[in-house]
Design a binder for these strands. Structure first.
Length: 634
RNA sequence: GGGCGUGUGGCCUAGCGGAGAGGGCGAGAGGUUCCUAACCUCUAGACCGCGGGUUCGAAUCCCGUCACGCCCGCCA
């Protein structure tokens, strides 16, 4: 019996029909080329343009034309004649179109896709025995999160989710900078200045409260007289020395301020929602002596030298002109020295480490990699994902100077605009499902937050973004609501068919409850028990009745989802998942227009309902990977 | 000055060696007695910054050049 069902399934996930198809095509093509005594190094597998009725194609004939002494189309025919798809479960035919070989999927390709995507966990790849720690955000605890760095948690969280779906064992870390001069200044300022001399906080929250002291301290140091400054500097210096020496009282003083600040900042992150498995304090690596050990080990390297009393590392061997200072002349460590200890700690606990950081840290990051290598680590374990900061039209955003847009303000504004949108549409709404105030609030939250996240995650991190309100908060097509709407539409149909409990995600007054549509930190697991779901019995369904081009195109798009996750995980490129969501949303909308579901004849109706279920799972899980809510109604 | 990154229709963006360069916004024209029109269809608009090169084939690779961004602290 030919095994056509989930041939690559292990554990709870499946790699999907598209990847299976690709492997079959590769094998069949390789075999044909061998039979013709042609090289098989480059098979030229690619996805054909939209109007070509094939799922995969090959352009090998171009490359082999010279060797074969015949024009590419002729070589293509020759190869096609040799290809045997008899053993393939998912390929039914190979044909040529000029120099191209086109592979047509078999009926089982569509049938198995419909079955696989009937699982609520569709898109989850089989578990790998590989742990990854994703470090992201790690913003200095000196003030509220602002938009300039907002790409970090959003990209970092999407990478974490995508790796998770792809089968990795993922941990999310926030590395807390609770050492160093900035924090010493902050602690000194918080203990020194009087609340009465400060402006009112912008919000009643610890981070907005405390940042006033930090800003006050910074401006004081700029404007102070020499004697005032010297007095302040000696206190700041004392804090830094205390931290370096592992002094318990200093650590507590700093900790009080940092912990409060961080607790405040976490409110902003929770709204996205972005959460962490662990907050790793930088001082841990000073207190446990590892930073000191690192410095000692570095001193022993030939590339280390002492200049002006400071220990440095010559990194020209690694193509880095700028030497790395790892011990100041006063014997204290620097950020990178501690980060070295931090990374060795990560390497001991995880197979791989991914760090999401702003482009400004690039030199720093390459110095870190070089030094890690000198210390004998395998730096292939570490990958940096760099993003370009979000700037204002008038310049950069700065916590210290108080220039910039707070993330909270952006989210508030986005939700407010989304709410206006929902209310405007209420009047012309056709669907008879009587949204109540709770629904309006829920939808505004899901759409407002989703739009911000989607806007950021859908772009390549390396591209610069200049922040403009209207552009960031555009709810028109090619934004989160476009995709979210498709999910709501699938749910609408399923609810109408009695396959979904209507409004199941909308029945609470808790403002955070709106976030439940993202199954919290529960992952698409495969049992679908965490949320209302349409149980469809795929057994009695004949997928062959799904024969219109729109149905086929939608199924083909659904079939590619696991491959899209795999590629996004391999490249650490969640924006490609966003591109995918756009494609499936488009395919669904065309299907929706052309193919009535509920009014269709019995057999077609059942099959189309199964297709809607499959589309829903795919869209929901793709949005999950991006950290964008999937509303059941809007 | 050096290093890294980015340059795709008026604006934003995908594609990063192969089939007339996809989308979206904006502009123009249509579509709803029918599962939610936050939707769909059509039209106009691009010598993929510029100049060379490699290749059967370049937006994609290489070299040069220009523009913009970031970095070049005993800061983080």
């Amino acid at each position: 019996m030919a095994v056509t069902r989930h041939p690559y399934t292990t554990g709870s996930g499946t790699r999907g029909m598209f990847l299976s198809l690709r492997e079959e095509v590769e094998a069949a093509l390789r075999e044909a080329l061998s039979a013709l005594s042609l090289p098989t190094a480059d098979l030229g597998i690619e996805e054909p343009p939209e109007d070509v009725p094939a799922v995969l194609a090959s352009s090998v004939a171009f490359r082999l034309a010279g060797e074969r002494g015949a024009p590419p189309p002729e070589v293509a025919s020759e190869i096609a004649a040799e290809v045997d798809v008899g053993e393939c479960a998912y390929v039914t035919d190979v044909s040529t179109q000029g120099p191209y070989l086109n592979f047509t999927p078999a009926e089982a390709y569509y049938a198995d896709t419909l079955t696989a995507a009937g699982d609520a966990g569709y898109g989850r790849l089989p578990a790998r025995e590989e742990s990854v720690v994703v470090e992201h955000t790690s913003a200095n605890p000196t003030g509220p999160m602002h938009v300039g760095r907002a790409r970090n948690p959003i990209i970092g969280d999407a990478i974490s989710r995508t790796l998770d779906l792809a089968g990795y064992d993922v941990s999310r870390h926030y590395y807390v900078n609770d050492a160093g001069r900035q924090i010493a200044v902050f602690t000194w300022a918080a203990e020194t200045f009087d609340e009465a001399d400060l402006p009112a906080p912008e919000r009643a929250r610890a981070d907005y409260d405390l940042v006033r002291y930090y800003r006050k301290g910074s401006s004081f140091l700029e404007d102070a007289s020499d004697t005032e400054r010297e007095a302040a500097e000696s206190e700041i210096e004392a804090i830094m020395q205390g931290l370096e020496a592992g002094d318990e009282e200093t650590h507590e003083r700093v900790g009080r301020v940092v912990d409060r600040m961080l607790a405040g900042m976490r409110f902003s992150l929770d709204r996205l929602p972005v959460t962490f498995d662990e907050f790793v304090p930088e001082t841990r690596f000073m207190r446990n002596g590892n930073t000191e050990t690192i410095a000692t080990r570095l001193e022993e390297d030939d590339r280390a030298f002492l200049e002006d009393g400071a220990w440095q590392l010559d990194l020209t061997d690694y193509g880095i002109e700028k030497e790395l200072v790892f011990l100041r002349s006063d014997g204290t460590s620097l950020y990178t020295t501690r980060d070295l200890a931090h990374h060795e700690w990560k390497f001991e606990r995880f197979d791989r480490a991914v760090t999401v950081l702003g482009e400004g840290h690039m030199l720093q990051a390459s110095q870190l990699q070089a030094a890690l290598s000198i210390l004998g680590n395998d730096t292939d374990q570490l990958t940096d994902v760099l993003y370009s900061h979000v700037n204002l039209p008038e310049g950069t955003m700065s916590t210290r100077e108080g220039t910039g847009v707070d993330l909270d303000d952006l989210l508030d504004e986005s939700i407010a605009r989304a709410r206006e949108e929902v209310e405007d549409r209420l009047e012309t709404r056709i669907r008879d499902d009587a949204l109540d105030d709770g629904d309006v609030a829920r939808i505004a939250e899901q759409v407002g937050i989703g739009a911000v996240r989607y806007d950021i995650v859908s772009k390549q991190p390396s591209k610069a973004i200049t922040f403009e309100w209207d552009r960031a908060l555009d709810f028109e097509a090619q934004s989160a609501p476009y995709v979210q709407y498709v999910h709501a539409r699938t749910c609408g149909i399923l609810a109408e068919a009695g396959l979904l409990e209507e409004g199941s995600d909308a029945t609470n007054d808790d403002p955070l409850g709106a976030l439940d549509a993202i199954p919290g930190d529960e992952r698409p697991a495969g049992n679908g028990s965490e949320r209302s779901d349409a149980a469809i019995d795929v057994e009695g369904i004949d997928p062959a009745v799904l024969e219109t081009p729109e149905e086929r195109a939608l199924l083909e798009t659904i079939a590619r989802f696991p491959a899209a996750i795999e590629a996004a995980a391999a490249d650490l490129a969640p924006h490609t998942v966003a591109t995918y969501t756009r494609e499936i949303a488009e395919a669904f909308n065309v299907f929706y227009r052309e193919c009535p579901v509920l009014e269709a004849p019995e057999e077609v109706r059942e099959a189309r309902l199964a297709l809607v279920v499959a589309a829903r799972h795919t869209v929901a899980n793709a949005l999950w990977a991006l950290g964008v809510a999937a509303p059941e109604s809007m």
